[in-house]
């Protein structure tokens, strides 16, 4: 037998195939992440040019930081609002588009179009439209509603940021749901109809379970994505009014880039990473419970 058995050769090919991705992960993800961990143990005074090991001091500061606590609360609201609104709207749109109607392609195109508009352009447009005399209130005024100063109220600012983000990206989830819906075998519905199940029951008992893997995937992507929403908040509200929309990533940016507390910024980064990882792990674990089938 030669040394290069099929299995050995196969192993080698496997390593070769994953090598680019793996080396990339090492160089551009893991090593930088390790460095961020190291920075978090130091006091890095960017202005003074000093870099000094201080052990867990930044982490102690993290525990006592009231602004951080309010940032966590804002983050939780933001993520929850975003995920709930995004997934339910995506599902609603997908169900509507899945009806046997002429012209759904046009609507599908329209709902998807914001995904393609560059984020900066999108946010800029909404920033102008959400001003007190902007088009949003203009449209509302047309309906006889006196619109608020969206970006200046604690609650309305949060709602605005969520809605702007959802409308931008819901098209992606919609398409994924649409594909999943089209994969649900029609005979199942027929059978349920014969058993006397109404539309709502059919939706709950057949549709939801069958598309649960898609729900899982979209919810993971959306939650993780919601923790990374930065530029939109920076443009629309700058974390205000007060600190009502200062979410974790924005607070991180302020500390590291605006106030030059870079060591502390790194500490917040580490916290952010832990939260994202924990959430993802939790959802992945939960899939056994509520995801019907797995390949």
């Amino acid at each position: 037998m030669t040394f290069w058995t099929y299995r050995r050769r196969d192993n080698l090919v496997g390593y070769l195939f994953v090598a680019p991705a793996l080396l990339g992960s090492l160089a551009f993800v893991l090593v930088p992440l390790g460095l961020v961990g190291w920075y978090s143990l130091n006091e890095w005074n960017v202005l003074g040019g000093t870099f000094e090991f201080i052990g867990a001091e930044n982490y102690q500061r993290l525990l006592a930081d009231e602004k951080l606590r309010s940032a966590l609360v804002a983050t939780a609201w933001f993520a929850a609002g975003l995920v709930v609104l995004n997934l339910s709207l995506a599902l609603l749109l997908a169900v509507l588009l899945n009806q046997k109607l002429r012209g759904t392609t046009i609507f599908r195109t329209l709902f998807f179009s914001p995904v393609l508009v560059s984020l900066v352009a999108w946010t800029l447009v909404w920033q102008l439209m959400l001003q007190p005399e902007g088009s949003v209130n203009g449209l509302l005024g047309f309906l006889g509603v006196d619109g608020p100063n969206w970006l200046r109220g604690d609650t309305t600012a949060m709602i605005s940021v969520i809605v702007v983000q959802v409308i931008k990206n819901v098209g992606l989830n919609m398409v994924l749901f649409l594909a999943a819906l089209q994969g649900v075998p029609a005979p199942l519905y027929e059978a349920a109809k014969i058993d006397g199940a109404g539309p709502w029951t059919r939706f709950r008992r057949i549709t939801i379970p069958l598309i649960s893997p898609t729900i899982l995937l979209t919810s993971i992507i959306t939650i993780v994505g919601s923790l990374q929403v930065f530029a939109q908040i920076a443009v629309l509200t700058q974390g205000g009014p007060g600190t009502s929309t200062t979410v974790l990533i924005y607070y991180l940016y302020q500390q590291a880039f605006q106030f030059h507390h870079f060591g502390y910024g790194a500490t917040i980064s580490v916290l952010l990473f832990v939260i994202v990882a924990a959430l993802t792990l939790m959802q992945w674990r939960m899939r056994r419970k509520w995801v019907l089938h797995e390949t």
Binding site: W44, V46, L47, V120, L124, Q127, A231, A234, V235, Q238, A256, F257, Q258, H260, F262
Partner: peptide
């Protein structure tokens, strides 16, 4: 879009320093 241009400057600057 002053905010964005400010952000631009800020991030760029901070990074220059951080090196």
């Amino acid at each position: 879009m002053t905010t964005l241009s400010r952000l631009t400057a800020l991030i760029l600057a901070a990074l220059l320093a951080l090196t």
